[in-house]
């Protein structure tokens, strides 16, 4: 079947097979590999994307549910060479090691800061509790989000 949706501001159309998730379509059909496949059951947050402005795990959304929707992935946050302040902060803080969790965390942190521009430490921890990271122990991630909160207008 055919699927039409807006991805990162571009209108896209692709053939999909029944049962494919939005994550599969983004990655394998549209070549947007930034959303990651770590657990594929909504536990790790590595595939976090915006679906019509809502933060979702793309692995839990059936491709068909996204018909006509607007999707923003991690690839849609930077403008060309210019990184988003959240991305800058992750680099600056040393919050990236293997980086597999990074795209999902950046989208989730982006979502938090768009709702709450000055989150407390407890609020950051609560908002990112659905994103697993196995390398960093989260300290630098916490720092990164706090740094981004200071620089985000």
């Amino acid at each position: 079947m055919k699927l039409r949706l807006m991805v990162n501001g571009e209108s896209r159309e692709t053939e999909v097979r029944e049962g494919e998730s939005l994550l599969y379509v983004l990655r394998e059909r549209l070549g947007l590999f930034g959303s990651k496949n770590a657990c594929e059951q909504g536990e790790c947050g590595s595939c976090s994307v915006y679906l019509d402005g809502e933060l979702v795990c793309a692995c839990l959304v059936l491709a068909g549910q996204a018909e006509g929707s607007e999707v923003v992935t991690v690839e849609g946050l930077s403008e060309g060479e210019r990184l988003h302040p959240v991305q800058e902060a992750f680099l600056e803080a040393g919050a990236v090691q293997c980086g597999f969790c990074t795209p999902g965390l950046i989208v989730a942190a982006h979502d938090l800061l768009s709702r709450n521009s000055e989150p407390t430490e407890a609020e950051v921890r609560e908002a990112l509790a659905g994103n697993l990271c196995r390398c960093t122990g989260y300290e630098k991630i916490l720092t990164a989000v706090q740094m981004a909160a200071e620089t985000t207008p």
């Binding site: 990651k36 690839e75 990184l83 992750f90 980086g99 597999f100 950046i106």
Partner: peptide, 23 residues
């Protein structure tokens, strides 16, 4: 020095190619 990662920019942009992203 706390030198930054050469693979950092592609990693935060979602462009770093992991073995599961190969195509």
């Amino acid at each position: 020095e706390s030198v930054g990662r050469p693979d950092g920019v592609p990693k935060v942009k979602g462009e770093f190619e992991y073995s599961s992203d190969l195509h």
